[in-house]
């Protein structure tokens, strides 16, 4: 069978989604938060169903009742933790250690829930990983990173991505991520290089400025602010955009699923522009443009995504997947963990 490229497509519209979003919020308030579980499912369904591959949408299948139960349980646990903080620091420390060791479990459960409830062509995705491996990736590495003065960080990012992708499956077919440590270090090295150059340039400029200026202290402060805003802010946004883009592309371009592989062509410039415009729009509209920002972000990211397949798209087989509970997912949501895929 010959190779063919299939583009992902996003059909969501900001106007349509805005109405769904605002109704979600109002119903969530009116029902004192109970509807928020249904709101979450509707939002996710909207994005999944508007993501199409070969003119076929993805499906989000989670049961809102399960999410509600998970959410209440997660909420109760977090409340307990906050109360323990009020009562005694020793108790809080103990709870914190328990949470630390529960973290890998929470992450596995959250991924399980999300993937089990994602489907394409009526075949579910799934996630299966053991606790010890997750402990190494999510607790071991974060301890190692400061000990190596950050040198282990690119390896940590790779381990995280690899953990998530290698344990994911579509039906009976498992995903694989083949990007090497060398490639991850390459990306971070380049980012560090840009940073170094920018710092050197800034120092040189500051020297120049100093030797030229005869001015008072006031204008020196002004010059400093000017530097911060004009050089540092764009620099940080660029570096952030560069890292996000390169890592996403690297990971996706080295991800495979049987005879399929994926291609991602995000560009740093577009990601930075997206990020800046979204942030400004959300701030200036007091949050009302959040749906618009979500839609255009999804549209751009999916427009850059392609699947290259040399096999039969009808040949994927469903697996006997175990059912997933929502507690992990909701804890993850409330704790705002960044699993990052």
């Amino acid at each position: 069978m010959q190779t063919s490229a299939k583009h992902f497509e996003f059909r969501g519209e900001a106007g349509e989604f805005f109405k769904i979003w605002i109704v979600n919020i109002v119903l969530s308030i009116v029902t004192l938060g109970i509807y928020s579980a249904w709101a979450k499912v509707r939002t996710k369904r909207y994005f999944y169903s508007n993501t199409l591959l070969m003119n076929t949408p993805f499906d989000y299948l989670a049961d809102p009742l399960k999410i509600l139960k998970g959410r209440l349980l997660a909420f109760g646990l977090i409340l307990l933790y906050s109360l323990s903080a009020l009562l005694s620091p020793v108790l809080q420390g103990a709870v914190l250690i328990i949470i630390l060791f529960a973290l890998p479990w929470i992450i596995i459960k959250a991924l399980k829930f999300n993937l089990y409830n994602s489907a394409y062509r009526n075949i579910r995705f799934s996630f299966d990983a053991d606790y010890l491996r997750a402990l190494g990736v999510f607790i071991g590495f974060p301890i190692l990173v400061p000990l190596t003065l950050g040198l282990a960080y690119p390896a940590f990012v790779r381990a995280r991505k690899k953990f998530v992708i290698d344990h994911s499956a579509y039906g009976t077919s498992t995903f694989t991520m083949e990007a090497t440590n060398g490639q991850f270090y390459g990306v971070y090295l380049k980012a560090a290089g840009i940073m170094l150059l920018a710092v050197l340039a800034a120092v040189a400029l500051a020297r120049l400025n100093q030797s030229l200026s005869l001015a008072s202290e006031g204008s020196a402060v002004f010059a400093l602010l000017f530097f911060m805003l004009l050089i540092w802010l764009p620099l940080f946004i660029t570096i952030y955009g560069y890292l996000y883009t390169s890592i996403s592309n690297l990971v996706i371009n080295h991800t495979g699923l049987q005879q399929c592989r994926f291609e991602s062509a995000l560009t740093t410039a577009a990601i930075c522009r997206l990020y800046i415009v979204n942030t400004l729009a959300i701030m200036l509209s007091l949050g009302l443009l959040i749906p618009w920002a979500m839609i255009r972000t999804a549209r751009y990211r999916l427009s850059c995504l392609t699947m290259v397949s040399s096999g039969d798209m009808n040949a994927f087989i469903a697996a006997e997947a175990e059912k997933a509970e929502a507690l992990g997912e909701e804890l993850d949501d409330l704790l705002d963990l960044d699993i990052g895929l």
Partner: peptide, 26 residues
């Protein structure tokens, strides 16, 4: 005031929790 602060924070998370993390400022 401790309870009010936590309740307000919870309310805000509930409201904006699904609206993605860009909203943490709001």
């Amino acid at each position: 005031s401790i309870l009010q602060d936590s309740l307000t924070a919870i309310l805000m998370i509930g409201l904006l929790g699904d609206a993605s993390s860009i909203s943490s400022l709001s």
